[in-house]
């Protein structure tokens, strides 16, 4: 699929005022569900795998797994379920033992149509992130990886944690810019909306036609996302736990509870 073929539907949605939805998925069945729900793009990455395992996603940023191996292992299964829907693979650019070119090539070979910078250094907070940047393994390397993927004709989804990162993503010509305020369900609403707004403005000031999405913090359901889209002027939302962990848990719980409510003849 050419980059233009992937981007044209997103631009059309934006022009029509429809929210663009990128669905983060960690299994074939949730990929199939997201596709059936009309997702515009699928994304797969290490934290989505942890969601499916029932493990808190924040633990996917700790040294108990190889995030790149998780993504590369899962990609073929997601791509197979996705059919003609493009799939974006999350790659960790700070992996000291793999070159960026190898990582991007491996994601492409595994069927990814695009690349995103997850895991991201921004999640670790300012001090740790600054230390990573100084050692050459921070945000700049994430940007370098996305540029490399863009040169290969792949779609790029770039995550930013502050206005400066959003501006740099826009400046680098990243196709879709995701703005993020931290782990879903955390943080104060008003503060997070201001942070989102500042990132959206920073990206648009740099490139007025940038496609900008929101994710994380207080955005947990359609009403909270609707309010944030209205307040910030963003083009859409990237789902994570909100369209995977929650729906799986409640769906399975309700199904089991409904069967448990049945009575046998012995009760009569």
């Amino acid at each position: 699929m050419t980059l233009e073929t992937m981007l044209a539907p997103l631009r059309a949605k934006r022009a029509a005022g429809e929210a663009i939805v990128v669905a983060g998925v960690g299994s074939g069945i949730t990929a199939a569900g997201a596709k059936a729900g009309g997702a515009d793009l699928l994304a797969t990455y290490g934290t989505a795998v942890y969601r499916i395992l029932g493990v808190p996603t924040v633990l996917a940023f700790l040294p108990y797994d190889d995030a790149n191996k998780l993504t590369l292992g899962l990609l073929p299964e997601i791509v197979e379920r996705a059919g003609d829907l493009p799939v974006v693979g999350g790659l960790g650019a700070h992996d000291p033992r793999r070159s960026l070119a190898w990582l991007v090539g491996a994601a492409r070979d595994a069927g990814a149509s695009g690349v995103t910078n997850e895991p991201f250094a921004g999640i670790y907070g300012p001090t740790f992130r600054a230390e990573l940047e100084r050692s050459g393994y921070g945000f700049s390397r994430e940007l370098e990886m996305l540029r490399l993927a863009a040169r290969e004709g792949m779609l790029t989804l770039g995550w930013a944690f502050d206005p400066d990162e959003a501006r740099r993503m826009a400046e680098a010509g990243i196709d879709v810019i995701g703005t993020m305020t931290g782990i879903t369900g955390a943080g104060n609403d008003a503060g997070a909306i201001d942070e989102f707004g500042a990132m959206v403005r920073a990206a648009r000031d740099e490139r007025p036609d940038a496609i900008v999405l929101l994710h994380g913090g207080p955005l947990v359901d359609p009403p909270s996302v609707a309010a944030a889209l209205a307040a910030t002027g963003a083009d859409g939302y990237a789902t994570g736990s909100s369209a995977e962990r929650g729906p799986v848990l409640t769906g399975v719980r309700d199904a089991v509870a409904a069967f448990k409510a049945l009575r046998t003849n012995a009760a009569r």
């Binding site: 960790g92 000291p96 033992r97 895991p119 990573l132």
Partner: peptide
């Protein structure tokens, strides 16, 4: 786990990112 990263020429911080099973 930070030892092998250090001795492979990387920063010790690599052992605190998600690029390997530390245990």
């Amino acid at each position: 786990n930070t030892g092998p990263f250090r001795m492979a020429g990387h920063g010790s911080l690599a052992g605190y990112l998600a690029y390997g099973d530390s245990n």
